[in-house]
Design a protein around this nucleic acid. Structure first.
Lengths: 219, 219
DNA sequence: GGAAGTAAACTAACGACTGTAAGTCTACGA
DNA sequence: TCGTAGACTTACAGTCGTTAGTTTACTTCC
């Protein structure tokens, strides 16, 4: 990840052929604005330019327009989310229950660590304006497809190990589980204090994965 | 509900003592902009004034500033949501299963009928700016409290009737169920096409309410 | 090593829109 | 007739996205 630029000196121009570096710095600046500022309205083309220490029109060499910046941010963070889920799954070992909770908690952690990013990833204001830009519906759908297949995979492992009740539609259950995680993650990202007990996450996961009761508890 | 004003003639001034009428018209105009326009950025103080057929500064007689309009919209729609849930519950009769699905489906219907309104209710951009304005955290939390207690009530009825597994924390289960519903409702409100099977709602409700398998099916 | 070409940025400016303040009109009701 | 609630007009300072034209400095070629 490119560290955010809080500029004072006039910024060294990139070498020839390294102009693409600025693209990453622009995305990093947009993310920095998102993280520190209240909402995505703080991420304007001009504010991004200020944050990156460049002149506003310089952005047009790398992005067609303002929504394109937001789109790039979303795509990058989607990749990071997918990578985090994969990594959590790999580190969890072979036990299906461990894998399930590892992946789900990783999802919730990513959302909790960067609430503002999570907000624009799923249901941010960039979505409508994207109609005019380059992204296709399929591209948009496939962004979360990897995460869903991973969830379905883990659910299948739970069923196979006999710790979850059998299912007629693993993918459907994966979608339902994801929707539950999303509901929790999104609500946490939006309100300052979540109502309800502390173990809501376990409740959601246990119920939506159809885990059989009386199993070991999750650490 | 006050019908939206699409003005051409110069608008009849309200009678003495009826100045409060304009307040409702302003809220209705904001909602109309929300429904027809893409996102909440279309709801500016000036656009609301245009829609209502009044001059922009006239709004300040009824609202302190622009976020206050959005806040009023959210509060009104929250009340409508709570009323819809109550009505669905009353119409469902006595059968706990019928009540459960009636209330949950009513929630999803409200969200589906007015996606943009749902978006600003839960996780809209008005939230951060509210810090400066009048609403308190408690007020914000209590907005959904009524819906949660209703859900917990219905869940308790299901347990009492023996169609749901016993629970140690009904309120916690109600929160989890609501989070699942919210995840589905929000995702539907945001994307154009929801991935996953058509019966995701039933899957979510059945799992999160801990309904015992082998019961009657839902019409 | 100096000249030239060009990538990578800049400055200046436009038109549009925003929220809000200050002061003014006007028609209803007593 | 007249006070005032309920509106209006005008205006300001600020920000936005974007276009047009200009400068700077790296790299390559003679």
């Amino acid at each position: 990840m490119v560290t955010a630029v809080t500029n004072t000196e006039p910024r060294r121009r990139n070498r020839r052929g390294e102009g693409g570096k600025l693209r990453e710095e622009i995305i990093a600046a947009a993310i920095a604005l998102l993280d520190e500022g209240g909402d995505e309205r703080a991420v304007t083309l001009r504010s991004v330019a200020r944050k990156a220490g460049i002149a506003a029109p310089s952005i047009y060499a790398h992005f067609a327009d303002q929504p394109s910046i937001m789109l790039a941010v979303v795509q990058q963070e989607m990749d990071r989310l997918a990578a985090a889920l994969r990594e959590a799954d790999e580190k969890a070992g072979q036990d299906p229950r461990q894998r399930l909770f590892a992946v789900c908690n990783a999802y919730l952690d990513v959302a909790r660590q960067h609430p503002q990013r999570y907000r624009i990833m799923f249901g941010g204001l960039w979505t409508p304006s994207v109609e005019d830009t380059s992204i296709t519906d399929d591209e948009l759908e496939s962004l979360g497809a990897e995460a869903l297949t991973l969830l379905a995979d883990v659910l299948g492992a739970c069923v196979g190990a006999g710790i979850a009740h059998d299912s007629d539609d693993l993918y459907g259950d994966a979608v339902a589980l994801w929707l539950g995680l999303h509901g929790l993650a999104h609500q946490r990202a939006v309100v300052r204090k979540m109502p309800g007990p502390a173990d809501v996450a376990e409740r959601l996961i246990t119920a939506l994965a159809h885990l059989k009761s009386g199993s070991l508890e999750q650490g």
